[in-house]
Nucleic acid binder design. Sequence first.
DNA 1: TTCTTAAATAGGAATGATTCTTATATAAGA
DNA 2: TCTTATATAAGAATCATTCCTATTTAAGAA
Lengths: 138, 138
Amino acid sequence: MVNKSTIKLLSEHGLKITPQRIAILDVIMALNCHPTADVICDHLRINHPHISIGTIYKTLDAFLSKGIIEKVLTESDTARYDRVHDKHHHLYCAETERVEDYFDDHLYQMVNDYLRKKRIKNFKMKDFKIQITGKFSD
Amino acid sequence: MVNKSTIKLLSEHGLKITPQRIAILDVIMALNCHPTADVICDHLRINHPHISIGTIYKTLDAFLSKGIIEKVLTESDTARYDRVHDKHHHLYCAETERVEDYFDDHLYQMVNDYLRKKRIKNFKMKDFKIQITGKFSD
DNA sequence: TTCTTAAATAGGAATGATTCTTATATAAGA
DNA sequence: TCTTATATAAGAATCATTCCTATTTAAGAA
């Protein structure tokens, strides 16, 4: 998953190449803030003043179902999106809406090993995620 | 937090005792399914046919701010609630909306020790949660 | 290149969850 | 029992998201 062009990524997933999809995917890849559909829309409007919010939602759904992006787990009523990249976790600010990626291979391996060995009764694990809440100091 | 009566729990948190609040809290404590406001409403309507959905939301907010309940982390646009109890994690079905509690002290301690020692840069951890997605087999 | 067609888009209406408003009712302390 | 601040019901308003439909367009075929 290294430095693949947006168009290549779309066609690899069997998605028709449109200016809107290119723009939406570019914005998601450029932003590191786990944006809402509205935030994505604001950024898109700079170069695509007429893009429809419906198109954005529909496109996000297409990306979700292809596994290009994922939704961020949240307690809020507004969906936030994240590109899919290597196993990572999320840091949540308890006071603001800020969310940051947190990469920690050792943590991932440790929990993964534990859960694979453990075998939870009546449940077949597919994946897991860790949310760490607290406060940013910068 | 052992076997405390609903009324006691309310007054301990400085909340006025009302039939609606008692009923809402009773339903949340009785249900083990991490219900939405709507599901709570359905259960309440059996004995409180005129309870207002607005009252339910307002009451849930009061319970949230007092720390009696918490929201479940989710990718969906409908909030789900859970009583606050001992450190636990959540099992999510990847296909249905089912969510179950998963208690695992060892897992909690292991991750907690790791994160406390690790000290993430620019971040003061307060708490963490683990979401395990997969499929139930019962 | 031009043609064809299934799929994508814009724009606006519809939906569903949640919040807000306000008049009335009530818990709880005096 | 009285007083008052707060809770409630009911319905309107809001906000995110989905749906609908006429129009446009990407992309493969000729």
